[in-house]
């Protein structure tokens, strides 16, 4: 598959210690760990919020890490939807130089980014680390159905029933990849279904 320029790339979070206003939103533990690495825990001049979804998996000293931060830094939200609401509220009052660090599955990253950009955050101030599933949100241009959690190279669209090839052309606005009917020119010839986006 050609490398398509719209396909996003991700990097491990590099938290800038000069930033005075930071929001970290994390689907797993990766967020808190990155903060500990970059900031330590004793920076009183800074506004920091670490948004996590509870309950967290008990692993790799999660309780210990969280306990080492000032308590006002930690926001435990009961679901992703609550997390996005909290994120939007934080963005509304944030200063112009605020930075956002996201870590989680691809879908989580782009849903949070949409909230931030909708509140006026510049794209170049949002860092993204893929630390969860690379399963894709897929848009079917033929019937407009959006299918979540696609892990295979081809799927049968639940909306129109056509078999779609899952392409790399990506829309940041919707966090979705484009599909296209795979057998329009070769009827019935569906490629072998393989799990590739995990």
């Amino acid at each position: 598959m050609n490398s398509v320029r719209s396909k996003p790339e991700y990097h491990p979070l590099v938290i800038d210690p000069k930033r005075r206003h930071l929001v970290i939103a994390s689907e797993g533990m990766a967020g808190a760990k990155s903060v500990k690495l970059a900031l330590g825990t004793d920076q009183p001049q800074r506004f920091v919020r670490i948004l996590q979804i509870s309950p967290l998996r008990e692993d790799e000293g999660v309780t210990e890490t969280l306990a080492s931060f000032p308590p006002e830094w930690i926001c435990m939200l009961p679901s992703e939807e609550f997390l996005r609401v909290r994120l939007r509220n934080l963005m509304r009052l944030a200063p112009a130089d605020a930075a956002l660090y996201l870590t989680g599955s691809e879908r989580f990253l782009w849903d949070c980014a949409a909230v931030a950009e909708g509140s006026g955050m510049s794209r170049n101030r949002i860092q993204m680390e893929l630390s969860g599933s690379a399963a894709r949100r897929l848009y079917c241009p033929h019937c407009k159905t959006v299918t979540e959690g696609v892990t295979t190279n081809v799927i049968c669209c639940p909306g129109c029933g056509h078999w779609l090839e899952v392409r790399d052309h990506f829309s940041r606005r919707t966090g979705a990849y484009a599909g296209v009917r795979v057998d329009a020119e070769a009827p019935g010839q569906i490629p072998k279904v393989m799990e590739v986006f995990l």
């Binding site: 944030a94 200063p95 112009a96 955050m121």
Partner: peptide, 8 residues
């Protein structure tokens, strides 16, 4: 500048 909100 320090008192300007995000998106300014």
């Amino acid at each position: 500048l320090a008192r300007q909100l995000l998106g300014t």
